[in-house]
Design a protein around this nucleic acid. Structure first.
Lengths: 206, 206
DNA sequence: AATAAGAAAATGACCGTTCGGTATGTAAAA
DNA sequence: TTTTACATACCGAACGGTCATTTTCTTATT
């Protein structure tokens, strides 16, 4: 009988679970679904992970470390003002989404389903808070640099950024094949920072 | 000879299911959860609805009729250019969200979980398509009126609008108590149409 | 106004299936 | 021979759904 490396199997399980959780939801994915995808049996999975919930938390940790933390590093790395940082966040996100199609929507999708779940809600919210705090800080910086309208509430603007970000990823996943990713990112960038209106639209009397 | 309380029970079931589906997801909500909330028994529920799935489709229909169709009517009602219409969409949405907190996020939340479900995917996508077609039409109109940058792809802009809309509602539901709704709507409006940047930020060299 | 008939609504026990999870066995690598 | 990685077989609980039965309301007749 062939033998695989244990750590490698760990990884395979996590990736299979990630894909299924994102596609069918947490409660919509059974342990049997996961082991079928990996090519294992249930008993074996439970030698690697002690529960379905632990599997989810492992993925959440992966998300936090590989996405949020990395985005923060990437945005802070190098020079430039607050708007440059925001641009870099978008750039990083777009790049990440193209390379890790499942992971990039993990937080949004799973939070939708599990926001009221006592076992997961604290961890999910904690990651969201990290994210919001970081974007909020950039907006604050942008205001003090005069690049962002000073009437803007930084925390609400951060929420708006995350909202647009989440929403775009959501739409992208729903229409992967129909959307030109690069064009889509340009639309995000332009809309969030400069708005939809042309000069004429912008200056028309309210 | 129909009894009046029967149709009232229908309504109670739909509302309870709506709230639970939005809060805990479709697969995270059991029939037992629903009947407990209404104060009924399972057998009785199945006299009103022939399956859990039919219950979901009834709510989806409610969403379509009360939200999307009404938004289209409201936006088209009265005078004004494309930007005015977009403003009215946002106004309607905000109003609707304050009055129907569960229904307003139903489509987004349930699509996240059920986008790969063969029983529901077509109906969910159909509603999304109606929505996108409508917003896309407004953007097209805005372009021909010179109010929207003519390089904008109307369909992508519509997706972006929906994305921001979905995302904001999502964040709002996650932080209901922390968010000042009116301020939040202003942020949405301003960001989508005019962007985050101040005049200085807007004109700075790229 | 009282009543009997009957339809509508609700009950609660129950079905087969699938769920997450466990105990134990086995084969290969060390 | 011990350890590691997996399979097999099974558990109780919860799932969505059914059904014979009982309760509740409406209405036609007295």
């Amino acid at each position: 009988m062939k033998r695989a490396d244990g750590i490698e199997t760990d990884r395979k399980i996590v990736l299979a679970a990630l894909e299924l959780f994102v596609r069918k939801g947490y409660h919509g994915t059974s342990i049997t679904d996961i082991v079928n995808k990996v090519g294992l049996t249930k008993g074996s999975l439970y030698a690697h992970f002690k529960s379905k919930g632990e599997l989810l938390l492992r993925i959440l940790e992966r998300y936090k470390v590989r996405y949020i933390d990395e985005m923060i590093r990437f945005a802070n790395d190098g020079e430039g003002d607050a708007l440059d940082k925001l641009h870099r966040c978008i750039t990083f996100s777009a790049q990440f989404a193209s390379e890790h199609q499942n992971l990039c929507v993990f937080l949004t999708f799973l939070t939708t389903e599990l926001k009221a779940d006592i076992d997961f809600e604290p961890m999910l919210k904690a990651v969201y808070n990290d994210y919001q705090r970081f974007i909020g800080g950039i907006v604050r910086q942008g205001i003090s640099q005069g690049l962002v309208d000073k009437k803007t509430d930084p925390d609400l603007a951060a929420l708006t950024f995350m909202a647009l970000h989440d929403g775009l990823l959501h739409q992208w996943v729903l229409n992967r094949n129909l959307i030109d990713a690069e064009e889509y990112v340009r639309t995000f960038r332009k809309t969030f920072i400069y708005g939809l209106a042309s000069d004429k639209g912008r200056t028309k009397p309210q």
